[in-house]
Design a protein around this nucleic acid. Structure first.
Lengths: 197, 197
DNA sequence: TATTAATGACTGATGGTCGGTCATTAATAA
DNA sequence: TTATTAATGACCGACCATCAGTCATTAATA
C-alpha cells in the first residue's frame, strides 16, 4: 500500500555509510546525530533501524568481518602448511588492508567488555566460536597430515587467544614495538615445538 | 593558610569508596553524581580530585592491582616450579578472590580500547610491561635452572597474552565453559613441550 | 583576614521518544 | 479508463530527561 523499503538493505547502507566515521573517531566522540546526518537521514529515522549506537557497530562489524572471512577462506587455500595458515589468521591483526576493520573490532570488544547486552554477547560468541573452530580445524588437519603432533589440538584455542591477546596489548599500550614480528616469533617458536621432526 | 587535605590520600579514599559501585554497575550506567554522592562528597568536589570517570577507574585499578601484586609476589615464593608460577599468574583471571578486581580490569581495558588517552595508555603500558617482564623473569629462571628449554623465552610474552586472551574471550562470550580448566590445559600442554626431559 | 575546601545550581550537549507529515499505492467510483 | 479516496509506513525534528563538566558562592580554618 505504501512505500516499502528493504529494511535489511537499508540497515546495511546506513552502517556502511558510517564506516569512515567509526574508523576515524573514537566511539565516545561519535554521536547519534553525527551518524544520522552523515548517513543523510534524521535521528528519528536512525532509531527506526537501530536501537542504539552499539547496534550500528554490531551491524558494521558483521558486514565487514564476513566479507573479510570470505577473503581469508580463499587465501587459506593457497597453502597446505599449518604454520602458514595460522599466519594468515594472524595477518588480520597487523595488515594494512585490515586496519579499518580492526578499529571497528576494537570498538566492538570494548562495548562487549562493559555492556553485557545479551544480543551482543550472542554475536560475539558466534564470532569467537567460529574462529576457534576454524583454528581447531586447521590444527586438526595438520595433525592428520602428520605435520604437527596430536597434542597440538589442546592449544588450538590458546593460539587464537595468544594472537588476539598480543593484539590487544599492542593496541592499548606501547609495550609491543612490532606486532607483526612479535606474532611471527611466537608462532614460529610454538611450531618449532609442535612440528613432527 | 587554611584547611589542607592530603590530596593523594583523598583520591585513594574516593576511589576505594567507589569500588562496590564500579564492581556492581556497568561503567556506562554509572554517573559522576552517583559516584560523588556515594563517596559522600559533591560533584564539584569530585572534579577537584579527578578529571573524569575514567581516571577514577585508573586510580582504583592502580590501588587494587598493586595490592594484589604484593600478594602474588609472596605466593610466587611458595614454589620453585616454573609451571606452578605461571599458574599463579593465571589464577588472577578466574579466582573468586579476584572477581572484583577483574570487573575493574575489564572496565579499564574497555576504556583503553576506545579512548586513546595518553595518560591511560602510559599506565596501561607500565602495567603490561611489568607483567611481561615478570613473566620473562620467571621463564628465564626456569631456563637457568635447566627446567625448561632456552627457546621458551620467545613465548614469554605470548604466554601472558594467551592467558589474557582466553580471559577476554570468556568474559565477552560463552564460548569457554570453564576458564580455569581451559587455562590449565593450555599451560600444561605448552609446558609438556618446553620442559627439559 | 587570607586561603582553601566544598558546594550545588547552571549550562550545553546528547540519547532517545513521539506526534505529525507526506509520498506512494491500492481500491473504488465515475 | 481515469479521478478520488483511504490506508500505510517512511521520515522528520521538536521535545524531554539526563548527564558531564563549570563556576560563583559559601563555609571553614589558620
Amino acid at each position: 500500500m505504501a512505500i516499502v523499503v528493504d529494511k535489511v538493505q537499508k540497515k546495511r547502507d546506513i552502517a556502511l555509510a558510517s564506516k569512515d566515521l567509526f574508523v576515524q573517531n573514537s566511539l565516545k566522540d561519535l554521536t547519534i546525530s553525527k551518524i544520522a546526518s552523515n548517513a543523510g537521514i534524521s535521528k528519528g529515522s536512525l532509531y527506526d533501524y537501530f536501537l542504539n549506537k552499539e547496534e550500528i557497530v554490531f551491524e558494521l562489524l558483521n558486514i565487514m568481518l564476513s566479507e573479510y572471512d570470505e577473503y581469508k577462506k580463499q587465501k587459506l587455500l593457497s597453502t597446505c602448511k599449518t604454520k602458514e595458515k595460522i599466519k594468515i589468521f594472524a595477518e588480520f591483526f597487523y595488515s594494512d588492508t585490515t586496519s579499518e576493520l580492526r578499529e571497528i573490532y576494537k570498538d566492538f570488544i570494548s562495548i562487549n567488555l562493559t555492556t553485557p547486552n545479551e544480543k551482543m554477547k550472542t554475536y560475539q560468541s558466534e564470532c569467537f566460536t567460529r574462529y576457534f573452530n576454524w583454528m581447531c580445524e586447521i590444527i586438526q588437519d595438520g595433525i592428520d597430515n602428520g605435520e604437527i603432533i596430536p597434542e597440538s589440538i589442546h592449544i588450538a584455542k590458546g593460539i587464537f587467544a595468544l594472537i588476539e591477546g598480543l593484539f590487544i596489548a599492542s593496541s592499548t599500550t606501547n609495550s609491543i614495538d612490532d606486532l607483526q614480528k612479535e606474532l611471527n616469533t611466537n608462532i614460529d617458536t610454538i611450531f618449532a615445538l609442535i612440528e613432527v621432526k
